[in-house]
Design a protein around this nucleic acid. Structure first.
Lengths: 127, 127
DNA sequence: TTTCGTTATATTTTAAAAAACACAACGCAA
DNA sequence: TTGCGTTGTGTTTTTTAAAATATAACGAAA
């Protein structure tokens, strides 16, 4: 900095320097080929698809449009080499979607990471 | 889940279950009273204000509007109890903005946290 | 072979976020 | 006392993201 007015220098010395308590928060996600393929929201979507057997029901529960949910699923299936979700249209119930063993594995992996991260955030917050 | 077609069950067993290598990425930020007050972008803004002595120059360097930069600074000063930036208009150069000792302290704190976080991300990526 | 509810996909509309624009206030220096 | 470049603030416009709408394809079951 090239110029510091003397008056301001006087003013700023009236403030304390102790850092107040704060909460550290954040988000983590998995990237493959520099692209985000899995995060908090997508994992919740996968879990709800697993529980309901339906992309549409999962989307409704999360208050997102079916299109958005489908796009996310599609993007995940593309990002990983293997599908996390397999779906079929027509038939009993109109159609069905379910998780592959690989998809279930990925969910578990992410939840492990998320747990470690939550501990990190807790440890590094200032009480 | 209530219904799993046998055909699909056969299909999904053809996929492997090993988790591929991935990069864990993420962001952290500081919250006070449930509100985000400091993150990656704001810290960069503070550093550029410190280096240039000007909110406008810092904004230009980061390709954001002056208004946005000013709003961010204002929000930070509000969020923490004390100002991180003090500014003055008029006079030589048209005006000036500079960091308080408290602002500098906060930058240091966040960079420490960010460093730890980067190590966390590195440790938990899968090679 | 008709009905049903879902998957799959494209298009349109709406809402939110970001950027752009405009201008008063300020105080040093010429 | 005038000019200058910045701070400070509100308003308008543009861009982007999200939501809503529409519609074909599908296959089990009645």
């Amino acid at each position: 900095m090239s110029y510091v007015p003397t008056l301001i220098n006087l003013v700023i010395n009236n403030y304390l320097m102790e850092i107040p308590s704060f909460k550290l928060n954040g988000r983590i996600w998995i990237e493959i080929a520099e692209e985000k393929v899995l995060g908090h929201g997508r994992v919740e979507l996968l879990e709800r698809i697993h529980a309901s057997g339906s992309i549409r029901q999962a989307a409704l529960q999360m208050k997102m449009s079916y299109k958005q949910a489908w796009d996310l699923v599609n993007h995940m299936n593309d990002g990983f080499k293997q599908p996390l979700v397999i779906s079929k249209r027509g038939g009993k119930g109109g159609g069905v979607a379910l998780l592959t063993p690989f998809g279930l594995e990925i969910i578990g992996e992410f939840k492990d990471l998320q747990k470690k991260f939550s501990q990190f955030l807790e440890r590094n917050s200032k009480k």
